[in-house]
Design a protein around this nucleic acid. Structure first.
Lengths: 89, 89
DNA sequence: CTCTTATTTCGTTGTTTCTCTAATTAGAGT
DNA sequence: ACTCTAATTAGAGAAACAACGAAATAAGAG
């Protein structure tokens, strides 16, 4: 959960869009993957980076894996960026 | 200035620290480079990415190049991240 | 015009990222 | 046990990244 891992995870547009879709609510890996024109293994790799950064959490439901957005880490990133704009640290 | 370029630029810790230092005020490339244990060519490449993303602007003063933080693009990134946390849009 | 200073560009090397297909694991149902 | 679906892991290749030393460029001083 080093902040560097978080920013690295946020650097790819596909991963940011995954987060954006999860904003609406938890979703399975397959359903998420259906929104992209990429192979499932490719998406799975993106999911792994998001998990590494703890930007998402995962929960198994039967054969499906349900991904959840982790707001708190996203807020850490937000704070990190805000620190770059504030004059006062 | 596509937002993707901005996030990509923000993904490296050295570049974020460069921005952080510029927060205090404009600074020359050499002075900036002095704060890192990296060669000048390496730093120059990082500066180029920041320029590409328009996160910094540059101004020549004699033989020196003075880098300035560009808050407005940083705010765009901030807004992009905020969009990932908000429930409403 | 030459010399010095400041910074970037060039050429190279090793590492990481992104993508794919093919093979594998995990769970549920028959 | 077998089979289906869901998802990940393994393996491979192209492209991009990050780092360096050496050479090139730009601007001012003498």
């Amino acid at each position: 959960m080093p902040i560097n891992t978080v920013f690295e995870a946020l650097s790819h547009p596909v991963r940011r869009e995954v987060l954006s879709r999860l904003k609406a609510g938890p979703m399975s890996a397959g359903e998420l993957a259906g929104h992209f024109e990429l192979s499932k293994p490719t998406l799975s790799a993106h999911f792994a980076k998001l998990r590494d950064a703890e930007l998402v959490t995962v929960e198994r439901q039967g054969t499906s894996l349900i991904y959840h957005l982790n707001l708190s880490v996203l807020e850490d990133a937000l704070k990190g960026l805000l620190d770059l704009t504030e004059k006062k640290p």
